Amino acid sequence: MFKSVLDSAAAADGGSLALFVERIDGQTEQFVINRSLASRGTPAYNKIVSSLRPLSADDCQTIAAALEPLLTTTPPIHPLADFINTLKQQPSSFEN
């Protein structure tokens, strides 16, 4: 599903994170964890969205599993592990 982690970034909104990964099909997919100050205490807080597709809870589990092998080639200071853990915690009622 994924070839490599290309980049990551932190937003100026108080804590949101972005992860850019190269997919097998050559496209770059961006995942964003919403951790903005404005979203704290709301259902939107800590939700992950994709730049290419809506995500169901099952999709999040599949993506987390597909990202795990990239942990061996990504520096430990990178937020990849945080993305994997957050994807695994998405509630079953989650829809983008």
Rank of each mutant, 00 (worst) to 15 (best):
V21L: 03
G14F: 01
N34G: 00
C60W: 13
L67Q: 07
P54L: 07
T62D: 14
T62K: 14
D13N: 08
L87E: 01
I24N: 14
C60L: 13
N85I: 10
Q89G: 09
L6N: 12
K3M: 07
G14Y: 02
I84S: 05
G26Y: 01
T62Q: 15
K3F: 00
T86S: 13
S8T: 08
T62C: 11
R53M: 06
A38M: 06
T72D: 14
T62E: 14
A9L: 03
L6K: 14
A65S: 11
S8G: 01
S51C: 03
L71A: 12
F2C: 06
S50Y: 05
L67V: 07
L52N: 11
G26Q: 10
G26A: 12
Q90M: 15
D58G: 11
A81D: 09
R40N: 00
P91R: 15
K3Y: 02
D13L: 04
A12N: 01
L87M: 13
I33F: 05
A38V: 08
S16L: 09
E68Q: 08
D82V: 13
Q90L: 09
D7F: 04
L37F: 05
C60E: 13
A11S: 10
K3G: 00
M1A: 11
S92P: 08
L52D: 08
K47T: 14
F94M: 11
S39C: 12
S56K: 12
S8F: 15
S93G: 09
Q90N: 09
Y45T: 06
A66G: 04
A65I: 02
G41N: 08
S50V: 06
Q61I: 07
E29S: 06
V49I: 15
Q27Y: 02
S36I: 05
V49E: 14
H78W: 08
A57C: 12
F31P: 07
R35V: 00
T28P: 00
L6S: 11
D59E: 03
A12D: 06
Q90I: 11
F83V: 07
I24F: 11
L87F: 14
V32I: 15
H78N: 10
N96V: 03
F31Q: 12
L55R: 03
V49L: 15
L37D: 12
E22A: 12
V21G: 00
K3E: 10
L17Q: 15
F31W: 13
N34C: 10
A12R: 05
L71I: 12
G14C: 08
V5K: 07
T42F: 05
